[in-house]
């Protein structure tokens, strides 16, 4: 780990000023991924600006049923929030499915969105990785990629996004509030926060230097019926092989509204738009749901070691909608 300067910001303007013009500066929230990657030598900041004390640590429920979750809210705090638990069950389940209770004590909502892929090559500086070291190549495509993405990938990178929370936020159509260094607020739909790798996998989000995620806005839920199911290699404390967040409203026996997002399959939470369109207005059986899920995989680029995720995802979506109906 490279030696670094540490500063604690007491207000957002100070945070922006501290990092301005310092290309190797990073913000520190909970640190559960940042410190991890610094120890591995994957991240080598020269300046760490602690923003965990900034006043973005509240969950505010609005009269219209929407919610603003502060970017510095920690997982434990979010899990305790009664309004979220009762009205956004998929979000709570996703949150509680992620990491361990200890990590949730520390980890922040903003940091969760910005956590890096757990691709093993990204995390090992002794290997090629275009995301970590632009132009060095991708070791995962010809190597071990079982846990990596099957869609939204490129020839340069097949990393998957590891978050659970973000998958639920995608199903709830969250909007990310970003504070620019000049103090202006910018709203970024969750679906647009993470960039697909293309030829530049090292550019992971649409954020610009000095941008700070101050909160996540949840519009009123499309339906009260929602859940999150995570398929993993053990029953707790493991990243998703595939996960699904689904919000479903049934009207007169037919799908009135449905929002489905997958985790573990793509470089960002993967919303199944085509599947949703195909299901609305129908009374689908399991096979119909599977077929509709495959519609969303038309552009999938599975690799030999992870092609099983396509069928698994289809089965999982079918199982979850069966449970919700």
């Amino acid at each position: 780990m490279r030696a670094f300067r540490y500063a604690r910001a007491t207000d957002p303007g100070e945070a922006a000023a501290l990092v301005a013009g310092v290309p190797d500066a990073v913000y520190l929230g909970g640190g559960t991924n940042l410190v991890d990657l610094m120890k591995l030598g994957v991240l080598r900041p020269g300046l760490v600006v602690d923003v965990s004390g900034l006043p973005y640590d509240t969950v505010a429920h609005r009269p219209d049923g929407g919610v603003l979750i502060g970017g510095a809210v920690r997982g434990r705090r979010l899990g305790l929030d009664e309004g979220i638990r009762s009205r956004f069950p998929a979000l709570t389940r996703a949150l509680l499915s992620g990491a361990s209770a200890q990590i949730r004590t520390q980890a922040t909502v903003a940091g969760n969105l910005l956590q890096r892929t757990r691709c093993p090559y990204f995390q090992d500086t002794g290997t090629p990785c275009n995301r970590r070291s632009p132009g060095s190549g991708c070791a995962a495509i010809p190597g071990v990629h079982r846990d990596l993405a099957v869609i939204g990938t490129s020839d340069a990178c097949v990393a998957s996004h590891p978050s659970d929370l973000a998958v639920a936020l995608a199903a709830y159509d969250a909007v990310v509030e970003v504070r620019r260094p000049d103090g202006e607020q910018r709203l970024v739909p969750i679906h647009e926060l993470h960039r697909l790798p293309g030829d530049t996998p090292w550019i992971e989000t649409v954020l610009e230097p000095g941008d700070l995620i101050t909160g996540v806005h949840l519009p009123p839920p499309a339906a009260p019926s929602a859940t999150y199911r995570k398929v993993r290699d053990r029953w707790s404390y493991a990243f998703a092989v595939v996960s699904v967040a689904a919000v479903l409203r049934v009207e007169a026996g037919r799908v009135g509204d449905v929002r489905i997002a997958l985790g573990g399959v793509a470089p960002r939470p993967w919303r199944l738009w085509a599947t949703e369109r195909a299901l609305v207005g129908t009374d689908p059986g399991d096979d119909d749901v599977r077929a509709a899920t495959r519609l969303a995989f038309a552009d999938a680029r599975p690799l030999p070691g992870n092609a099983f995720k396509l069928d698994l995802a289809a089965d999982l979506v079918a199982a979850v909608l069966r449970e919700l109906r």
Binding site: Y6, G30, G31, T32, V48, D50, Q102, I103, T105, Q106
Partner: peptide
């Protein structure tokens, strides 16, 4: 326990 809440001390910078 950090302010009574369980946390992984390996991921916390002491200065923070």
């Amino acid at each position: 326990l950090l302010d009574g809440e369980r946390a992984n001390s390996c991921l916390l910078l002491a200065v923070a």
